[in-house]
Design a protein around this nucleic acid. Structure first.
Lengths: 332, 332
DNA sequence: TCCAACAATGTACACGCTTACATTTCGACG
DNA sequence: CGTCGAAATGTAAGCGTGTACATTGTTGGA
């Protein structure tokens, strides 16, 4: 447990009989170094456990290889499952993720300001709890990449946006085709852009059939709130279809409906959002709108790897439908 | 989107009519600065959006305020739910979490080596996919804090260890008291220390009744593996009790048992591990051994905040039982 | 043979901050 | 009013690396 400091590049240089510049060149794949000296230096470095100091390194070339990931909470599988893939991709490229969890933190600005002192190269804004403007303001010297759903009318940002309009329409069409007419939306947090988006997609899909849905009190994206709201709701209404802001609420609602004796997929169809892995479990089996995590991660990585001079670029990623038993027999 | 660099401490010093040393002192709560100049400097800094460069700062006092969190994957709620709390606590103290996800990464050593170049102050080893020795070797100049369950016989490490022996015994006693005699263990990954620990606690508790359990093929901690193994198992055995390596497997097993017509909590009692929030959902309701995340986070923070010269210290944290319906009526 | 051109390495400074030490300011007291 | 000590600030030397530029060694062509 002795805190022994490693050696520095000048010390290693002395051992190798070269200058510290040569050490630096060996580690930065500089073509101006003779391959054999490079090998020799790297071997010696490995032997002595030398690794260049990333702090010193980033101090003078101002590239930290740090990527700040701004999320709500890692405890929500919807975020965590996408995040896990992105982190994996970053690590493959030797980029270091700096995690900012905003959910239970009153002062997100402060949190981001601290992170910005580490000279992060990129910021991926997953959370919709912080505004794009705040993030831009605080992370001035990093490239901001927005992966949340705040509407960004005509703003020139790096942006990967989810589009669930087609997937939502697919589901609505199917349910209308089943003869269902009474649609209800179980909403998430009122302040959430994501929620507004999902509601909008749903409304648009229904409108094409000349229909509309009823809005219900807001939950908070949790299982418990889905359960509670569904109980209140089903006491006064008998809808055909319950579209939920996310999968956790959908599962909660499903439990409530089951308790009230409704037959899921028959009396009542339930639709979720996020495609979390547990939506596919036997006991749940929720039809859901799922973002393609792989495609999203790839798009984010592509934006991250862009040369810093490249112009902003927008990606639109289409969501997919996962048909499960909560909407009865799948189409086709 | 212009990558404008912020100003430096000497530039701010010029603006404030002081030296850069005074700027530094204003930001490091040095008592040697006159309170009013401190205020003036901070006000000016806020006005110009100045924040000291953490890289430069840590370069010469060798305190980075970075904490590496070595986990398997954030996609597993068992890890994520504990992690979320710890991250929150770190952020309150202006410590930055650097996340290393080992699960899908073949070369964990490389991952840790890269992280170590950022001069992290502390490493919290959550994952049991990397050995303590490797971590010690790589993070030489950081304090390593072990929160996994690798047995550390007599080694002087900072260590927060879970003890579920009492909780496990409580459950076993209760089940034996119900008249149950045929116990089976559904194991997680064979290589996992955590799994071996949990099996051991289970065995010890049974042994006190002069009983033993049957071991079953290993799963992989997933819902799917719990389901699959349970199907295979229940085809050839009719146990009273199924203790599972974690909650996800327990839920999978429960689904399988339900499918096979068994009445959970009656014909068959099921026990999980981890106390993930969804174990408490109506549709699951799994009795589980739960680590007290708050206590664990507090212990970890305490170790992190210790002066670097302080001697190693071991914490033992007791798990609690969450009684649910999967073991029938709760005691008392 | 001589010089240009290139390959390989060394030299030295900059990156933005902290901190030991030097210097100035200021109030108090004899 | 001078002096001393404490309080407040300035000065300058690093921290460990990258990199522009200088230097050396080597090769090829006329």
């Amino acid at each position: 447990m002795i805190r022994r400091k490693g050696l520095t590049s000048v010390e290693l240089a002395k051992l190798a009989g070269v200058s510290s510049a040569t050490i630096s060149r060996a580690f930065s794949n500089d073509p101006a170094i003779k391959p054999e000296t490079r090998e020799r230096v790297l071997a010696l470095a490995a032997e002595h456990g030398f690794r260049p100091n990333a702090m010193a390194r980033s101090l003078n070339n101002s590239r930290s290889r740090l990527v700040a990931l701004v999320v709500n909470t890692v405890a929500n599988p919807a975020e965590a499952e996408g995040l896990d893939l992105l982190i994996h991709r970053l690590q493959e490229r030797e980029l270091m993720p700096l995690l900012l969890c905003c959910a239970n933190h009153e002062d997100r600005g402060h949190l981001m300001r601290i992170a910005s002192t580490y000279q992060v190269d990129h910021v991926v804004l997953y959370s919709d709890a912080v505004s794009v403007d705040d993030a831009l303001d605080i992370f001035r010297s990093a490239t901001l990449i927005v992966a949340s759903s705040e509407p960004l009318e005509g703003r020139d940002l790096f942006d990967v946006r989810l589009d669930a309009s087609a997937a939502t329409a697919q589901i609505v069409d199917h349910l209308v085709g089943q003869g269902r007419r009474h649609f209800v939306y179980l909403s998430g947090r009122a302040s959430s852009h994501i929620d507004k988006q999902r509601m909008r997609w749903f409304a648009d899909a229904l409108e094409r059939h000349g229909m509309a849905f009823e809005i219900v009190e807001h939950g908070d994206y949790s299982y418990e709130s889905g359960y509670k709201e569904a109980v209140l709701l089903l006491r006064r209404l008998r809808p055909d279809v319950l579209v939920c802001a996310n999968d956790l609420m959908a599962i909660g609602a499903q439990d409530a409906a089951t308790l009230l004796g409704l037959k899921i997929g028959d009396d009542l169809a339930i639709v979720g959002h996020d495609g979390v892995s547990l939506s596919n479990w036997d006991c749940h089996s929720i039809t859901t709108v799922m973002p393609p995590h792989g495609v999203i991660s790839d798009a984010l990585i592509e934006l991250i790897e862009r040369p810093p001079t490249a112009p902003p670029e927008q990606h639109v990623v289409n969501c997919m439908v996962r048909w499960r038993q909560s909407t009865g027999p799948a189409p086709r």
